[in-house]
Amino acid sequence: MSRNREFSTPHDLDEPTRQALYDLFLVLADTKHLLGLRYGEWLGAPAIEASIASVAMAQDEFGHARLFYGLLREFHEAGIPEREEVPSEYRNFEGLDRVWDSWLDFIAANVLVDGALSVQIESLQNSSYVPVRRMVAKILQEEAFHHQHARGWLLRLAREGAKPKAELEKALKRIWEPLLQWLGRPGSEHERALVEAGIQDTDSEGLRARFIERFGPLLIEEAGLDLPLSSDAITGQWVLGTALSWEDWDDAFRRRSRTGPDPETFRQIESFRKHEYPVGS
């Protein structure tokens, strides 16, 4: 264990830890990037106040993605090659591959995806990797607003009638399992390396436990939603009623398939390279 150690650059890390941390940052960067794109698509939210909030949250996600992409630069200098720019190399959460069909999908992701991202990022609060530790507080400060927004809409939809509530449940269930998996596979090389180096303060089971401790009360008790999640009558601990299957799971990508963003989405990302404009730094 090296809990008292601090790392300032990827050069300070041993090879497996460096690769695991690179993978984590790329997963976070791509996921936040894609989440920003999805949020930004909602100029046509059901109220103009919601459209404004969507574009604002999209910018936050881009801002965070920019920070994580920035952290990756030093890893490339330390010898990890840049990824090939093709959809199959993108490591975003798979629920972000395609445009969301409805505003309910927006709210489901706003609650769950943003929530899981925050749980993962919180685990870096006291990280031994100094460059990331320094940005966590700012990111979480901005995420607090996203959580407020998500919570407000979730409760409103759940309380204002059977139909919106049922539709919301469907939207949540569409991403429920992959999202819980996204927090990581128990016993993977990746989590072992990150926890042992003191980069992340708990393993994937620990992250999932935090996630359900936080969202159980909101989803089940406050919103009264029907999801495979319950609290133990005696201990009061939240227990997941979903058995996660790890077949085809890729620890580095945190996805089951490497399909990546759909062609229309990828065309937008591609425009970052297919141009001759002087964009500067």
Binding site: G63, R66, K138, E142
Partner: peptide
């Protein structure tokens, strides 16, 4: 003020 500051340049 924000990580997403559009005016860094």
């Amino acid at each position: 003020t924000a990580t997403a500051c559009p005016a860094m340049d």
